[in-house]
């Protein structure tokens, strides 16, 4: 009991591993966020533009794409992570560590984010699209200057939700060797009953989530002139 008291916040785990864990969680989130936008944004645009209310409706293609996206969203993350280990190895060379966790996290987040993008674009009123088409604009111009620009506050909102979800998934990835705060919490807080480590990990995760949410809201508000 006394020992435990003395180690409270003096814990060598906190001193030696906490900073690294925080950084790993941040790297994982940022890298995943980056790749999710890189692939998810075009996918979302494609979903919208091929969809029934898009610029170029093509229903067979849309339905096929939709099916793939829904499949990706239906597979539980923890299963996906284990399932695609061979693919992860192929890309990163290993299945352990935060770099490796980025692969399944990205694969899981892309369909999620793509749907968010699709939804945001659908909320841009069709009247605006027609008004700009009337000016003789190409579909590419309409996509970039009308759909994406007018839908940007919504897309930033969607990205914020995606990132927040990702942070909790990074913790889950930590359970199977993905590093970060999640792994620290499980290895020490759970397996070794170090309540202080657990508490600090939880607080830090909450702080990171809050910061992301706050920043996302702030940016979305600044961009929103409605």
């Amino acid at each position: 009991m006394l020992l435990a008291e003395e180690r409270w916040l003096n814990n060598p785990v906190v001193e030696n591993q906490l900073l690294e864990a925080v950084l790993e969680t941040l790297y994982m989130t940022l890298a995943t966020g980056f790749f999710t936008v890189l692939f998810g944004l075009p996918l979302g645009v494609l979903l919208h533009n091929l969809g029934p209310k898009g610029l170029n409706p093509m229903s067979p293609l849309y339905r096929a794409l939709s099916l793939v996206v829904d499949f990706g969203r239906a597979v539980p993350f923890i299963v996906l992570m284990l399932w695609i280990i061979p693919f992860t190895r192929l890309i990163v060379g290993t299945a352990i560590g935060w770099e490796a966790a980025v692969v399944p996290l990205t694969v899981g987040a892309i369909p999620f984010f793509a749907r968010m993008v699709e939804n945001s674009l659908r909320e841009v009123s069709w009247g605006k699209v027609e008004a700009v088409r009337m000016m003789g604009a190409s579909d590419l111009h309409v996509t970039w200057n009308v759909l994406l620009r007018e839908g940007l506050p919504g897309i930033i909102g969607g990205l914020t939700i995606t990132l927040v979800t990702l942070i909790s998934f990074t913790a889950m990835a930590g359970a199977v060797g993905g590093g970060g705060l999640g792994q620290l919490a499980i290895n020490y807080g759970y397996n070794r009953y170090q309540a202080d480590v657990m508490l600090i990990c939880v607080i830090l995760l909450v702080v990171i989530v809050t910061a992301v949410q706050y920043t996302g809201n702030f940016i979305a508000r600044r961009l929103d002139h409605r």
Partner: peptide
């Protein structure tokens, strides 16, 4: 080109909010 020779005004204006 033909569309550019036509100006259109809408009931709901349809200006871009951004």
């Amino acid at each position: 080109a033909a569309r550019r020779s036509i100006g259109m005004v809408f009931q709901h204006v349809n200006l871009l909010d951004s």
